[in-house]
């Protein structure tokens, strides 16, 4: 079996123990979305505030395993202050790192190449691919954020 050290990298465990952007935002102006992983009962709640195509603030809540919590934390740190376009590029790059085919329902990046995106800390989640059951834990927060941002844009 692949080493557990590939899965539980130190940077992941750091985000798990010391989550960034954990909390809530007032709705409105923020939008709230919930994601569930029916397999293991993980729940992620994303609050996101979008203005003029920029993710001004993001918080997350819910309960889940180290991978889903760390992924939420890393994602929130990566996309805060970015544009929705940049988020789409991140999302594509992340999904491709997770070896997931692009979701036809996801908006494609409108410019730029997702291959050029620097995922930074998120790269640490690469080892999850070796544990296929855990991929859904890592992608849950991204699905939920995409949903929240779509809703935010639809209501703005």
């Amino acid at each position: 079996m692949p080493d557990l050290e590939d899965l539980y990298r130190e940077i992941i465990l750091d985000h798990y123990r010391n989550p960034r952007n954990r909390g809530e935002l007032d709705t409105p102006p923020a939008v709230r979305a919930e994601g569930f992983n029916p397999l293991c009962g993980d729940e992620v709640i994303i609050y996101v505030q979008v203005a003029d195509g920029v993710i001004e603030d993001i918080k997350f809540g819910g309960q889940g395993c180290s991978i889903s919590q760390a992924s939420s934390s890393m994602m929130s740190a990566a996309v805060k202050g970015r544009t929705v376009e940049e988020l789409q590029q991140f999302n594509h790059a992340f999904r491709s790192m997770m070896s997931i085919e692009p979701d036809p329902d996801d908006p494609a990046p409108t410019n730029g190449n997702s291959a050029d995106v620097k995922l930074g800390d998120l790269e640490a989640l690469k080892g999850v691919v070796k544990f296929p059951v855990r991929i859904k834990c890592a992608t849950l927060s991204w699905h939920t954020l995409t949903q929240a941002v779509e809703e935010a844009q639809a209501t703005s």
Binding site: M1, L4, L39, C40, G41, R134
Partner: peptide, 27 residues
């Protein structure tokens, strides 16, 4: 988290289930 516990146990060949066990109201 149980999912992490089960992952670590699997390394030793120990099979346990982690999750809500199809009993979310009880959880």
């Amino acid at each position: 988290h149980p999912h992490d516990v089960a992952q670590v146990l699997d390394r030793s060949g120990v099979c346990v289930r982690a999750g809500h066990h199809c009993a979310k109201p009880l959880m």
